[in-house]
Amino acid sequence: MRINTFFYAVNQGIKNIWRNKMFSLASTATMAACIFMFGIFYILITNFTASVQSIEEGVSVTVFFEQGITEAQIKNIGDSIDRRVEVSRNEYVSAEEAWEEYKDIYFEGREELAKGFTDNPLANSSHYQVYLNDVSMQKTLVSYLRTIPGVREVKQSAQVANTLTDFNRLLGYVSFGIIFILLCVAVFLISNTVTVGISVRREEIAIMKLIGATDYLVRAPFVVEGVVIGMIGAAIPLVLLYFMYQKIIISIADKFSFIGSLIAFVPVHTVFRVLVPVAVALGAGIGFIGSKLTIRRHLKV
C-alpha cells in the first residue's frame, strides 16, 4: 500500500461523512449515547467496586481455639492460615486484648462496672481475626478453617459477604446487558450510514473499479468513515463525563457529606486513565465492525 493511497482513503472517508451529514450525525449521536451510557456504568461500577473493596477489607472471619490448646499449636494454626491465598492479613487477638477491646466498646463511660470483673470473663476467647482478599472466597476459607485440628469455632459474616458479592455480580450483568444492547444499536446505525454512503457513491465505485482501483481502495474510505464516526462518538461523551464527574463529586462532597463518607469516590484521573482508551477503542471498534459488516454485504468488488 502506497502512502498516497492511504491518505486518499482517509481523505475520502472524511468526505463521505460530510456528504452524508444527516446519517453521520445520527450515527455519531447514537454512538455518543452508547459510550455515554458505557461511561456512566463504568464510573458506577468502578466507584461501587472501590466502596465494596473498602467494606470487604473490614469483613473478617474469627477463629476460636479449643480449650487447653498450647501456644505452639496456636502458632501452627496461624501459620496454616497465613499460607492460604484467600487471606490478606491475619491478626492474633489474645484473651486479654479481647477483654480490653470489649471493655472499650461496652463499658465506655462506665469503667467502674468493668472493674467488678476480677477474672477475665473472655478467658477462653483468644482468636485469630482473618481478613480476606475477596469476600467471595469466604466460604472456601471457612470450610478449610473448620478442618484444622485445634479449631473450636469459626465465626463469619456470611450475609454481608454474600450480599456484597451478589450485588456486585448483578450490577455487572445489568451493565453488560444494557451496554450490549446499546452497542448493537450503534453497529446497526453505523451500518445504515455506510449503506447510504455506498449507494450514494455507487457510480463512483463502479468507475474506480474500471480504472483499476484495488479492493482496498474501494473499501477503505467506508471503514475510515465508520471508525471516525465511532471515535467522534466516543470523544464527545468522554469530555462530558469528565466535567460531569468532577462536578458531581464536588457537589456531593459539599451538599451530601454523609454520602461522601459512605462512598469512596475514585479520583477522576484514575477513572479516566482506563475509561479514555477503552471508550475510544470501543468507538473505533464498533465503527470498524459496523462498516466491515456492511461492506461485506453491500459492496461487491
Binding site: N4, Y8, E203, E204, I207, M208, L210, I211, G212, L217
Partner: peptide, 29 residues
C-alpha cells in the same frame, strides 16, 4: 475505457475527474 454517457463525477471539476484516475492507482501528487 470510455462510455456513451461519459460517467464523469458531477461533484468534481474537470481537473479532479482526470486526477481521480491517477489518485485511485496511487500516483504521487
Amino acid at each position: 475505457v470510455v462510455f456513451q454517457d461519459f460517467r464523469l463525477l458531477e461533484d468534481r471539476n474537470v481537473y479532479d475527474n482526470v486526477a481521480f484516475a491517477q489518485k485511485v492507482v496511487g500516483e504521487p501528487n
